[in-house]
């Protein structure tokens, strides 16, 4: 899989690390924490370009084809301390 980093261009997935999927809906804490994927075929995810510019990214991916649909940089790294 190739990921297009907004800063470095298209790079191999091995340069990046996946952190987690992001919630897209949910009224209760349990829904936001545990029932994150509204549609299991697509996901919104946090990644970090750890073996590159180290910037945090938000990826939209199609899980059936494995392709990245959209990449955006996230200005602040996720604050919960679970990043690698």
């Amino acid at each position: 899989m190739l990921i297009s980093c907004p800063f470095c261009g298209e790079r191999e997935v091995a340069e990046f690390e996946f952190r987690c999927t992001l919630e897209e809906r949910g009224a209760t804490a349990a829904e936001r924490l545990y029932f994150r994927l509204a549609d299991p075929r697509r996901s919104l995810e946090h990644w970090q370009h750890v073996r590159g510019c180290r910037m945090w990214l938000e990826l939209h991916r199609d899980l059936r084809t494995g392709r990245v649909l959209r990449t955006a940089s996230v200005p602040v790294p996720p604050a919960d301390g679970t990043g690698s």
Partner: peptide, 13 residues
């Protein structure tokens, strides 16, 4: 492999 996927194709890394 480390991230979600439904492709049944693994990463060579």
């Amino acid at each position: 492999d480390g991230y979600p996927s439904m492709t049944q194709r693994g990463e060579i890394t």
